[in-house]
Design a protein around this nucleic acid. Sequence first.
DNA 1: GTCGACATGTAAATTGTTACATGATTTA
DNA 2: TAAATCATGTAACAATTTACATGTCGAC
Lengths: 183, 183
Amino acid sequence: MSHSTKPTLLDYAILGLIREEPLSGYEIRKVFETTALGNYSSSPGTIYPALKRLQRLQLVEKRVQQETGKAKVEITSEGREHLRGWLLRPLEESDIEKRVDELLLRFAFMAPLISSAKQISFLTTFRDLLYPYITALKDYHRRTSEQLPASGRLAFEHGIMSYQATLEWCEKALQELTKNKSS
Amino acid sequence: MSHSTKPTLLDYAILGLIREEPLSGYEIRKVFETTALGNYSSSPGTIYPALKRLQRLQLVEKRVQQETGKAKVEITSEGREHLRGWLLRPLEESDIEKRVDELLLRFAFMAPLISSAKQISFLTTFRDLLYPYITALKDYHRRTSEQLPASGRLAFEHGIMSYQATLEWCEKALQELTKNKSS
DNA sequence: GTCGACATGTAAATTGTTACATGATTTA
DNA sequence: TAAATCATGTAACAATTTACATGTCGAC
């Protein structure tokens, strides 16, 4: 196969963004430049090839809007399905180690598409995977910190604290979601 | 220029690692596979080209150790200088937004090379840059959270909490360093 | 009428991933 | 002696960054 078949994280960010409403390439760039999605690149050399990729995968299509007469990128029904599948993909241990960013991006896009029960189960699994992972990190720290120079040890402790912050965020988000569910 | 002149983050991770003692390519891979530096790739297709790059930049060289008779990668004096320059590079605002990982890697390698006074000033600047950045994030949150779906808002709050954890880590690390300095 | 924002792209270079290839050495 | 580990690489491909190219449109 000469072409990739799997969207990148950036592709999903675009997909989740235009799910709400069709946007032009330029508008997508501006969103990535100015909003909370700003950790993704907004440069033309990133966005336009990504849009091509998504078109090739038939997850989006370019269509002239009847109201405005301007060409915008729309999500296809296949794109919607794919996005939904990505949002609902079961969590794995390896996601915790390497892809927390992806989990957060997935969660960010869940609200209008996924039931609040499923959002809660996502967070519950997230938390349940984080807990033993943090324990293992602390274990590793206990075993190896004596061999490390002070700054190395401290830097490692930053890693632990980051994961702990994510865990606390999970708990907090769970509280909010369960509260709103019962109200 | 056909070849890059600037080392990548991975290059610096290798440089900081072999500063202590020369290692073979394979040993470097194992360290990246099994230790706290494990967030960097350990695959041969990453490490060996990186070593080539570092050799081309004359920051490392391959030398047969007289004791063992085995070839290991050593840091050159130019490499030491370059590493030191990287560690001491002044912090910028853009580092906070996009390159916290790099700052942490830099700090991790400081202990044996950089005076504790300079480590403290690194952390102080880090903290002083984090503080207004977090304030700006909270401001942005206050202004825009009403327009976001619940999960989007929560995901953004994770970002804030992450930075806050980094800030708390700064304070904690500063306390430890200043305590040890006076003892 | 010119400056800045709107708008869409391409090209080159770089980096990293995955998979493959190859051979030596150690261990069960 | 067979399997695992040590050890070093290359090739194909994918993705991103930076820089360039080009043209429209509205405001001042």
